[in-house]
Amino acid sequence: MSLIHIEDLSKHFRVLNRREGLGGAFRDLFSRDYRTVRAVDGVSFDIEPGEIVGYIGPNGAGKSTTIKMMTGILKPTGGTLLVNEKAPYDNRIHQAMVMGVIFGQRTQLWWDLPVIESFRILKEIYKVDRRTYDEHMAMFDELVGLSALYPRQVRTLSLGQRMLCDITASFLHNPRVVFLDEPTIGLDVSIKAKIRSVIEELNRTRDTTIILTTHDLGDVEALCRRIIIIDEGKILYDGGIDKVTALFGTYRTLKVQIDESCETKVDAVRASLDRRFGPDRGITVACREAPWTNITIDQDRTPLSDVLTHVMGAFAVSDVRIVEISMENVVRRVYDGALE
């Protein structure tokens, strides 16, 4: 039996259609008009113990809703959801014993208390025996020098220190599965690396299943072997990270600012690139972020430098930016069938 078994899971919300204006607000008092939002719409996957899975998608895709169902906050509207062979919503307290949750921005430690006291309280809450507790704390002290932070109040810690403490706390009771939500958000590069290595170490030594939701592709690349992409309540992709890495690893978006609004120039740029390179070279031109003309290039098919040289020669370019592909773009590509 897999650790997490999800079959045809759905969650529908009834949302009030608010009518406009004062008259509308008045009518809303008497007759309420609802629409159904399918936040999660027929999702299925299985996760085995020890996996690190990246669960990604754009905002509003249904990520948080799925996680909230898996952690027992929301009751599913339909389908099967079993975590550790139990339905999370009906067994909240039992599930909590074998589960850990980390929110990137909000700590779950006791704000006014010294860090070590939070750990001691958690030891009591999760009924962790002395030996396990000491080993766990020793491990963290060795990994990140945590003992230096013990007497500090949580409120005095920096974001990075707090995250390390939150991770220590969430793994303290040796959960079978840990849900990480934006664990490295707002952190500087060195701390990010540290945290990723800690998570990896924990997964390696304890076989803890980890579900990671994040917008940071660096996290995903560093930790996940498997990725599930969700958009508009449906699974778009569920498989190895290599395929997706190929997708976003080599893609770059070249943003140029040509001395007119991008709308007038988009067609000209597209035509020009078509003439120079020919069609089907993995180059798409779009005008979605005025005044930038976005040229997305699949570097496996056309080198970026060539495109850049051509564009700068053919047009009066006043500013240039090169960015990696965004999460939204990845998802859009998958949606457009890039993986078929």
Partner: peptide, 11 residues
């Protein structure tokens, strides 16, 4: 949204 953390403990 800080209320969410209260769901996650076995209490």
């Amino acid at each position: 949204g800080t209320f969410l953390k209260y769901y996650f403990r076995p209490l």
